[in-house]
Amino acid sequence: MITKPDKRLIRGAALLLICAAAFIVATFVLGDAPAAAEVTTPAVPAGTPTSVLVIQNTINGLAFGVLLALAAVGLSLIYGTTGLSNFAHGEQVTFGGLLTFFLSTTQEVSIPLVPGTFTIGWPLPIAAVVAIIIAGGTGWLQDRFLWNPLRRRRVAVIQQMIVSIGLSLALLNLWQWWMGASRHRLTTSTGGRITFGDFYIGTQTLMSVVIAAIALLGVALFLLYTRRGRATRAIADNPALAAASGIRVDGIIRLVWVMACALAALGGILLALFDQGVGFDSGARILLLMFAAVTLGGLGQAFGALVGALVVGVVAEVSTVVIAPDMRYASALAILIIVLLVRPQGILGQKERVG
């Protein structure tokens, strides 16, 4: 017997497949037109068949979508448990990449307002682990000294959202003051390629995707099979009923903030490897994509954020076959609008009765 969640998953997957198929078919049709050839990026070898471009960009889009999902899942968990759309989440993504560079680079670095320069130079894996732990600690500090006091004073969600916008701007300027306006590479090696026929994927990208997939699997197992994970889902469904059932709501929300910031930092590190660099505004540039993934998958649905991120990643990359690469994020937001017109609650979201 198929349960209601299973039916929602099947319907969502079917809608996802229909949208992906329609978009790829349209790309094939437009890709054969002369106008499409005019906007092809110069990096693509002349004469490459459209079918090869579509499949290669789909591979790149899936890789980008998995990495984007790390940040989007944390954003979705925060929204699901608190109702807050955290506009400062992009800066948490940036923090992970910048802190890893700060700890691993052999260049001289400094701390604002602290005189002198020094070099840390840790190996990249150790620097990444320490950065993730520190980022998780910032999540604890944020909830302990900012968001929890606001909730206790019953500050409205819209006012908390405005606070998050101010925090985002403050952190954005702080990161620029700290690390400057230039982009920083976590590693000087681009790695090799794994080729299969006419297609390829970078070894560094593949490693990043594997790490991201393991982390996402860990989040899924946590939500499905642990007491705190089930408590997290219960709070997302009905906070008042969860509190009446004996669940420590504030404690679970604090755990969610720690997880979300740690996942954002991991996402920032892997995206820095994927994009060959991290800048003070790296997270801010993909913030709308994270919101698009969360909204597309279904607000407050952690698994929906994963599905939404994959859709956003694939659409953004495949669209570059027919439009300028600078417009690829706009195409992802366009597909968000189209899907929401068909299914307003998102791919895995639930219909809500009003009135």
Results as ranks from 00 to 15, higher is better:
residue 219 V to K: 12
residue 306 L to W: 09
residue 171 L to F: 12
residue 250 D to K: 12
residue 106 T to Y: 13
residue 26 A to R: 07
residue 112 P to W: 07
residue 188 T to I: 15
residue 197 G to R: 05
residue 65 G to R: 10
residue 256 V to N: 08
residue 260 A to W: 11
residue 154 R to K: 15
residue 193 R to W: 14
residue 319 S to I: 01
residue 28 F to R: 15
residue 351 K to D: 07
residue 237 D to I: 10
residue 11 R to L: 05
residue 275 D to H: 04
residue 103 L to M: 10
residue 247 I to A: 02
residue 151 R to Q: 08
residue 137 G to N: 08
residue 182 S to N: 14
residue 1 M to Y: 05
residue 307 V to F: 15
residue 145 F to M: 09
residue 119 T to G: 05
residue 185 R to I: 15
residue 139 G to D: 02
residue 116 G to I: 00
residue 282 S to E: 07
residue 30 L to A: 15
residue 107 Q to L: 14
residue 15 L to R: 00
residue 137 G to C: 06
residue 101 F to A: 05
residue 117 T to Q: 00
residue 339 V to S: 04
residue 259 M to S: 12
residue 180 G to K: 04
residue 337 I to E: 08
residue 211 I to Y: 09
residue 257 W to N: 09
residue 336 L to D: 01
residue 94 T to D: 12
residue 242 A to R: 08
residue 111 I to S: 07
residue 67 L to W: 04
residue 116 G to Q: 08
residue 257 W to Q: 14
residue 197 G to W: 09
residue 40 T to C: 01
residue 168 S to E: 09
residue 315 V to H: 04
residue 120 I to R: 10
residue 279 G to K: 02
residue 162 I to T: 03
residue 158 I to A: 13
residue 59 I to T: 11
residue 304 G to Y: 13
residue 342 V to Q: 13
residue 193 R to T: 12
residue 60 N to E: 11
residue 94 T to L: 07
residue 353 R to G: 12
residue 312 V to S: 04
residue 137 G to L: 08
residue 120 I to C: 13
residue 352 E to K: 15
residue 211 I to Q: 14
residue 125 P to W: 06
residue 302 A to G: 12
residue 63 A to M: 04
residue 61 G to I: 02
residue 182 S to M: 10
residue 347 I to P: 00
residue 349 G to P: 08
residue 209 V to Y: 02
residue 319 S to W: 05
residue 186 L to M: 04
residue 129 V to S: 02
residue 295 T to W: 01
residue 273 L to S: 02
residue 59 I to R: 03
residue 184 H to G: 00
residue 284 A to G: 07
residue 320 T to K: 01
residue 283 G to N: 06
residue 192 G to W: 01
residue 324 A to C: 07
residue 310 L to A: 13
residue 100 T to G: 11
residue 351 K to Y: 12
residue 18 I to T: 14
residue 339 V to D: 08
residue 29 V to L: 11
residue 338 I to A: 14
residue 88 A to P: 10
residue 65 G to F: 03
residue 163 V to L: 10
residue 229 G to W: 06
residue 289 L to K: 09
residue 161 M to H: 09
residue 190 T to F: 11
residue 86 N to P: 11
residue 327 M to V: 09
residue 205 T to H: 06
